[in-house]
Design a protein around this nucleic acid. Sequence first.
DNA 1: AATGTGAGCAACCGCATGTAA
DNA 2: TTTACATGCGGTTGCTCACAT
Length: 261
Amino acid sequence: MGRAPCCDKGSVKRGPWSPEEDEQLRSYVRRHGIGGNWIALPQKAGLNRCGKSCRLRWLNYLRPDIKHGGYTEQEDRVILSLYSSIGSRWSIIASKLPGRTDNDVKNYWNTKLKKKAVAAASNGAFASPATSSVTSSSGDARFAAYPPQPQAQQQQGLIRFDAPRSTELAPVPPVAQLGGAAWASPAAASGAVAALDDDVFLPDLVGGGGGVEQLFPYGDFYAGLQDRALELSACYFPNMAEMWGAAASDAKPQGLCNTLT
DNA sequence: AATGTGAGCAACCGCATGTAA
DNA sequence: TTTACATGCGGTTGCTCACAT
């Protein structure tokens, strides 16, 4: 016996939404909010739709801050970078792109970006999986370096994924500008970078050219951390504190990793 | 003009996860 | 602790439209 369906498929309308239904849902949400109960919402809003369908329609299409199409090179890079590390976790990837939904990002990937990336890969723009240091179980390391970054940007080292606060994915200052103290210890770092309470994708932190030593420039004392950082180079962390915690511990990290999951 | 084909995208499906009773 | 239910998520489907033949 399977679980009960979320609504009676025979009695609710399915398929494309009409402009009238859109307006009904939009005006209901405008007046009452989502109310924390999508199952009850259709009845309250006078819609003959499944609650799940209403939720999907609102989240993917009617929400006022939604953007459709017009993906920028920077957004492409974020998608490729995250996909190469964490795979098809579309909701996480979309959360780094303001105004984008998981469905939209997924569609964009499946219809355009994947082809673009594969074409670029076949032209030698990416490291091949065989030569990549990342063995990917969920992500695809072939896309890790797409699109090829200008050298100056690589040297800058750090990329912030704090998209919800701004429409631009602004790079944070290079390590040197953050000051040595910020990187002298996990404890100090967690305080110094607490303000950067942002998601962290270690390969981007490491950056091209400089290598892990850019992050851990303190000689033998931190040799262990360097090794750990290399181990974690295919991981994604929700914030700097978790990254430091993982680097300082032998335990399996909380971050999403290809090589360690 | 008619037909075939492929791309793009909205929507659905079913499983996983979270949470309240 | 268990159970039931709501929500979240990723994979997939199917419709529409543009373009080629």
